[in-house]
């Protein structure tokens, strides 16, 4: 999709043994499990640690829920497209909704002292913290999440 060129530039091919999945999710609450159940199983099968699986699961969940709720506004006519690649040292998840997009820079810092209990922004912060790379397209309706296994980690 729109991130592919950039993704290929900065990373080697995840390899032939990588698991790949593309799916269109309905814009319904709870639809994320149609892909996250398989994703979790594949992360385990590819040797990712329980704490990395937790981080990746959380980031994927936040991205998909954002697409369904904020992007598509639960409109049944709209879909959330999810594309996943899982290899032993790289996970790449791209989530694209059919919404108008948003400017991630406009989301206020939820860790500012006066905003600690204000709504919003935590999902984005958690995605940024838990993944190696997070990139939105210019329109703001598609996010690319990547986690690379750091050298020395197993």
């Amino acid at each position: 999709m729109e991130h592919d060129a950039a993704a290929k530039q900065s990373h080697s091919d995840p390899g032939r043994d990588a698991w790949r999945r593309e799916i269109d999710l309905p814009s319904e609450r709870g639809a994320s499990r149609l892909v996250t159940e398989d994703l979790l199983e594949q992360l385990g099968a590819h040797g990712w640690s329980p704490s990395d699986i937790f981080s990746i699961h959380l980031a994927a969940e936040e991205a998909i829920v954002n697409g369904i709720v904020h992007g598509n506004k639960l409109d049944p006519a709209k879909k959330v497209h999810v594309s996943c690649i899982v290899s032993r040292d790289l996970v790449r998840i791209e989530v694209t909704d059919d919404g108008a997009g948003f400017d991630p820079a406009s989301v206020p810092d939820c860790t500012a002292e006066d905003r600690l209990t204000a709504p919003g922004g935590r999902g984005l912060l958690l995605m940024r913290s838990f993944m190696t790379r997070i990139e939105y397209n210019a329109k703001g309706n598609s996010v690319l999440l990547e986690k690379k296994l750091e050298p020395g980690e197993s």
Binding site: E62, T117, R122, G123, L126
Partner: peptide, 17 residues
Amino acid sequence: VEFLSSAALGKLITLDR
């Protein structure tokens, strides 16, 4: 509890308030 999302955090914040 093994997992919770930011939506659950929102409920905890509201409860605390």
